[in-house]
Nucleic acid binder design. Structure first.
Length: 658
RNA sequence: AGCGGGGUAGGGCAGCCAGGAGUGCCCGGAGGGCUCAUAACCCUCAGGUCGGUGGUUCAAAUCCACUCCCCGCUACCA
């Protein structure tokens, strides 16, 4: 079987990888994983472009040997790819003398043979300090900014050129007809207009000005310029010039993936070179935009640089991949911000997808001993979901990850609604068999989610496969054929990303006071709730508390507790609650926080001042207070009511206060 | 200035190429339901003269012309 061959642009490793590198390789990896799932024999190549003056100078400046410098930087890229779970099959370094050099030289020779390489004089502005050509833009007052005492000279040098102009019509035609398909359309238009005026391109440099490159065959005074050196990686990595039979298994490439800044080289130079060398053209060029932060390009001066390593560390590879893929529109630039990352994790991954998977699996595990032997043959749901899965396939095939995500979320929303509408937690008392069918269908939906998310979030899907007790799910397993099955052990995969309210050095965000319960009534409308009147010193408050399963009215009356007073008031089943009493919850028992302090005493960490500002329930939930040795700690700081201690009843260490 | 991208509900987007009731997604707001699930899930409602003007058309967010505003690029760099 011919390989399905995908490439990324090769990175220039003169500094650390940035978000753009992470984006491109993640897109390529997601595509590769998708095609693999669909049964193709995928080969993904990436690598690094290691020649050129910039690498040479950066190494020199750092006082390092060029290969040592490159090895170091390249290993950082490889490390990033590993952390990103990139499933590449080949990593090609253009500094590879064994494989890459001879093959690139072979390509050069082919171009010479076709009569498309010729010598021509080139003249430019040369800085003797840098020993390099400068563009007019780079100069300040006609001088090199790094060597302002030296003169800029106009230097002529003789270089080899490639006859791009000869091929512009031919390349235009091929792109026009989509034989080499450039997407999106706007990039295709752009390159077609460039091809009308494309001129021959400089193809080499004298060794004296570019000391670090691949030697031009038959001319030891010249080295290849980047085109033949770097673009050729796409063929040299897959046996070009080494093993023609094997080369044909890979080539032509099914997809090159690049950024919009290098469109010309891939949609004009590269196909022209291939035609000249008599090599078939790749099939598709996918061009993505840049990834921006806060609406502008990331730069150190703006201070909006986002480090890929840090993002993976904070959010994990799955969520990072998911957000990267979602950030990029099909045309134009994308936007990445941590605020939206957190939002997406909490709402899409946790509340929508993750919650559906977990509620279904845990229901089956606890009520049916993890087994089912029938499914609900709800034609409407089934066909609706299979239709969406079909759309997702098209989304992936066109690399529209954003649409794919949107459609996947639709599936889990349908699942959540289906679960909700059937109310299995109630239905199970009336019709145990029907309930089992409903859950069986839900398991199939979970399976479909697992498969459709596999290209984007490999860890999640691997985790779900093991929870489902299924192995090696493929795209063809998207169906409702799982009718009798025993699942594995359910577990939560995505965890809520807490927006930690900065507990500032001076102000504690909560206004907590010691209080005494004056009276206890049962909530007329809710079986778990009490309505309490509490004394918080200068005023009295009415508080609704869900304690009826844990405390009797007698136990509560007169008890001295602590209450959050600046929480936004809320109606609970029709009765207003003007605060919240604090209790520890260790998963088994609920135990009140108590204190001997007189009502009204502020409860604070040492040294911090109080805060009257009203706080929303969500913000409150994001403040972690944990019990240790019966005492409450907020962000590691002990909470006390003046001089008196605050102690939690009944609960173990690690209990969360709420 | 040139080139490119954009202006659609309070925020972020899709829809535009192949015109057909402002349709859709995520967040946020208001109200309700539910308790299996990670305070999660479900439902309802509010909110828009689709940047503006003019044209083509039976019909325009969508096509054409003009115009206003925002942003990016303008390096022999992958």
């Amino acid at each position: 079987m011919k390989k399905f061959y995908i490439t990324t642009a090769i990175a220039y490793p003169n500094s650390r990888p940035h978000l753009g590198h992470a984006l491109e390789i993640t897109q390529a990896d997601a595509a590769a994983r998708f095609y693999k799932l669909s049964g193709k024999d995928v080969f993904l190549q990436t690598g690094t472009d290691e020649h050129g003056l910039k690498n040479w100078q950066t190494a020199k400046k750092a006082g390092k040997d060029i290969m040592g410098f490159l090895d170091e930087n390249v290993s950082v890229f490889r490390d990033l790819f590993a952390r990103l779970k990139i499933s590449y099959d080949n990593f090609l370094r253009t500094s590879d003398k064994e494989i890459h050099y001879p093959a690139a030289q072979e390509l050069w020779n082919k171009l010479v043979k076709s009569g498309d390489i010729y010598k021509r004089k080139y003249s430019g502005l040369y800085c003797t300090g840098c020993e390099a050509f400068k563009t007019e833009k780079e100069l300040e007052n006609g001088r090199c900014p790094n060597h302002s005492t030296r003169k800029i000279e106009t230097v002529e040098e003789e270089n080899y050129f490639f006859r791009l102009s000869k091929y512009r019509d031919k390349v235009s035609e091929i792109i026009e007809r989509d034989e080499y398909k450039v997407v999106p359309q706007s990039r295709k238009n752009e390159i077609l207009s460039f091809l009308k005026i494309a001129e021959d391109i400089s193809f080499s440099r004298p060794k004296a000005t570019l000391p670090w490159g691949i030697p031009v065959p038959g001319d030891d005074k010249q080295v290849m310029y980047v085109w033949c050196d770097a673009l050729s990686n796409y063929i040299t990595g897959v046996y070009y010039g080494r093993d023609n039979k094997k080369f044909k298994e890979f080539w032509p490439a099914d997809m090159h993936m690049i950024g919009k800044d290098i469109l010309r080289f891939h949609a004009a130079f590269w196909p022209a070179m291939l035609i000249s060398a008599g090599i078939p053209l790749p099939k598709r060029l996918f061009v993505h935009g840049f990834i921006l932060s806060e609406g502008t390009k990331m730069s150190k001066s703006t201070g909006n640089v986002i480090e890929p390593f840090e993002q993976i560390e904070k959010y994990g590879p799955d969520a990072f991949r998911y957000c990267l893929l979602q950030s990029m529109p099909m045309d134009g630039d994308g936007e990445y911000s941590e605020k939206s990352v957190k939002e997406r994790i909490n709402t899409e991954l946790v509340a929508n997808i993750g919650n559906f998977c977990y509620r279904v699996l845990s229901f089956l595990a606890s009520r049916y001993d993890s087994k089912f032997s029938k499914i609900d043959d709800d034609k409407k749901i089934i066909s609706e979901i299979l239709d969406i899965a079909g759309a997702i396939k098209l989304d992936y095939d066109s690399l529209n990850f954003r649409n794919a995500i949107q459609n996947i979320l639709r599936i889990s929303s349908i699942g959540n609604k289906y679960f909700q509408d059937n109310e299995p937690w109630k239905l199970i008392n009336a019709d145990r068999e029907k309930t089992e069918k409903v859950i069986g269908t839900c398991i199939n939906i979970v399976k479909i989610l697992t498969i459709t998310l596999k290209p984007m979030m490999p860890d999640f899907s691997a985790g779900m496969e093991s929870q489902l007790g299924l192995k090696d799910l493929r795209w063809k397993d998207i169906n409702f054929e799982l009718k009798k099955h025993k699942i594995g052990k359910p577990a939560i995969i995505f965890h809520k990303c807490e927006e930690s309210i900065a507990v500032s050095a001076k102000e504690f965000p909560l206004n907590i006071k010691a209080a005494r319960i004056d009276s206890v009534k049962e909530h007329p409308n809710a079986e778990k709730l009490y309505v309490l009147d509490v004394d918080i010193g200068k005023e009295k408050r009415q508080i609704v508390a869900g304690l009826r399963e844990h405390y009797s009215a007698e136990e509560l009356k007169g008890k001295k507790i602590v209450v959050v007073c600046n929480l936004k008031h809320a109606k609970l089943r029709g009765i207003e609650s003007q605060g919240m009493l604090l209790a520890g919850d260790d998963g088994k028992s609920i135990g009140l926080l108590t204190t001997k302090a007189i009502p009204g005493t502020a409860v604070l960490p040492d040294g911090l001042t109080g805060n009257e500002k009203e706080i929303s329930f969500d913000d409150f939930m994001n403040i972690q207070i944990i019990i240790k040795d019966r005492k409450p700690y907020a962000d590691g700081m002990l909470l006390k009511a003046g001089k008196e201690e605050v102690l939690a009843e009944r609960v173990k260490d690690g209990a969360r206060v709420r």
